[in-house]
């Protein structure tokens, strides 16, 4: 993934749910505060997303926008895509690499 080399990306892995929500929130905010431009979240390793996880993605995007940049979701896994599609949010996020990686 060439994007990950040229731009900062934070990889979230495993379950993106209520159990790790507080910790993930800190990681995301900390990452966004460091990332100067075009920050991205690498979601290829996410196995599960619940409401708490979805909230974090929305929060991340909002924070990025408030900093004058936009957030990209890299390579979202099937479970991420499933939630985004269910909630009609695929177009709200800048999603890359989804088609190639999800047969």
């Amino acid at each position: 993934m060439s994007e990950t080399e040229s731009h900062p990306a934070l990889a979230l892995e495993g379950e993106l749910n209520i159990y790790g929500a507080a910790e993930n929130k800190l990681r995301i905010l900390e990452f966004l505060s460091r990332a100067k431009e075009a920050p991205a979240l690498d979601l290829s390793g996410v196995t599960e997303v619940d409401t708490a996880g979805l909230q974090l993605l929305i929060l991340a995007q909002r924070e990025a926008e408030s900093m004058g940049t936009s957030l990209r979701l890299l390579d979202p896994s099937a479970s991420v895509l499933d939630v985004l599609q269910l909630c009609n949010l695929t177009t709200r996020f800048d999603v890359s690499g989804a088609l190639e990686c999800n047969p």
């Binding site: 209520i18 929500a21 507080a22 905010l29 909230q55 929060l59 909002r62 924070e63």
Partner: peptide, 13 residues
């Protein structure tokens, strides 16, 4: 949902 620090990751917004 509040922004940034104020947002409680375990609350439902």
């Amino acid at each position: 949902m509040p922004s940034g620090e104020e947002m409680d990751a375990e609350a439902c917004y």
